[in-house]
């Protein structure tokens, strides 16, 4: 494939990948933050301690998270069609991507919150703050630096998942590399796709590091 043939296809693929990754990060990131905070606060001894809720949430997260993503996409396809009205295309794969990202994010969020000093929550309670205020102004706020780094890690993971989604029908750089590179024995195309993904991931990492450093005021 020549450069002039490749370029328009590459641009489309980059656009699709970014659409998938950014939408997934937005939806799955927010939902995962909420689920992660729920996992953390309902733990025994924590702010909203609740054994049944904690057990159920943990069970769901533990069941969904280990499913290989490429199988997960096909397994939830009936649900995907119900929700998005389509079984293929970039928009349709955002649904399984967002679900998987939500569960992945929730554990990252929970792990970052576990290291939070319980004394800070006690101090806020002693000042008369309610649980919602404590979640917003103490728990999430104090863990913001590590959380941003967690989300940066997530960006890389979603980029990885989006390439698999591409193989199943989503388009994007994964699809581009497989269709025009792998299947046509054109390694240059594959390497171009790899190079572009590396650049995207590096930029995301740089942005994440900068933001985290700012929040941590170092």
């Amino acid at each position: 494939m020549t450069g002039t043939e490749m370029l328009p296809l590459l641009w489309t693929a980059i656009g699709q990948t970014l659409t998938m990754v950014v939408s997934t990060l937005a939806i799955g990131g927010l939902a995962g933050l909420a689920l992660g905070v729920a996992l953390y606060t309902t733990r025994p001894g924590n702010l909203l301690e609740n054994k049944p809720v904690s057990t159920v949430l943990n069970a769901i997260v533990n069941v969904v998270r280990p499913i290989p993503f490429i199988i997960f996409i096909t397994a939830v396809q009936p649900l995907t069609i119900q929700v998005t009205g389509a079984s293929y295309g970039t928009a349709s794969v955002i649904f399984p991507l967002a679900i998987m990202a939500t569960f992945g994010t929730s554990r990252i969020v929970e792990q970052n919150l576990v290291s939070l000093d319980p004394g800070l929550i006690e101090a806020a309670r002693a000042m008369g703050a309610g649980p919602l205020r404590i979640i917003g102004t103490v728990i999430v706020r104090e863990a913001l630096g590590p959380l941003i780094l967690g989300f940066t890690f997530l960006f890389v993971a979603i980029t990885d998942m989006s390439a698999m989604a591409g193989a199943v029908s989503g388009g994007g750089l994964g699809d581009f590399a497989l269709t025009y590179g792998y299947q046509r024995y054109d390694y240059v195309v594959t390497w171009v796709a790899v190079g572009v993904i590396v650049v995207i991931v590096q930029l995301a990492q740089l942005l994440g590091n900068r933001l985290a450093a700012r929040v941590l005021h170092h």
Binding site: D117, G119, L120, E122, A123, R125, A126, M127, G128, A129, G130, V138, R141, E142, L144, V215
Partner: peptide, 23 residues
Amino acid sequence: ERQLRPVRARIGFIFQQFNLLGS
């Protein structure tokens, strides 16, 4: 719990480990 919040707000509390919000 909700009725206790205003009670706590009227009592100052200082801690061994200070418990200041680092952010």
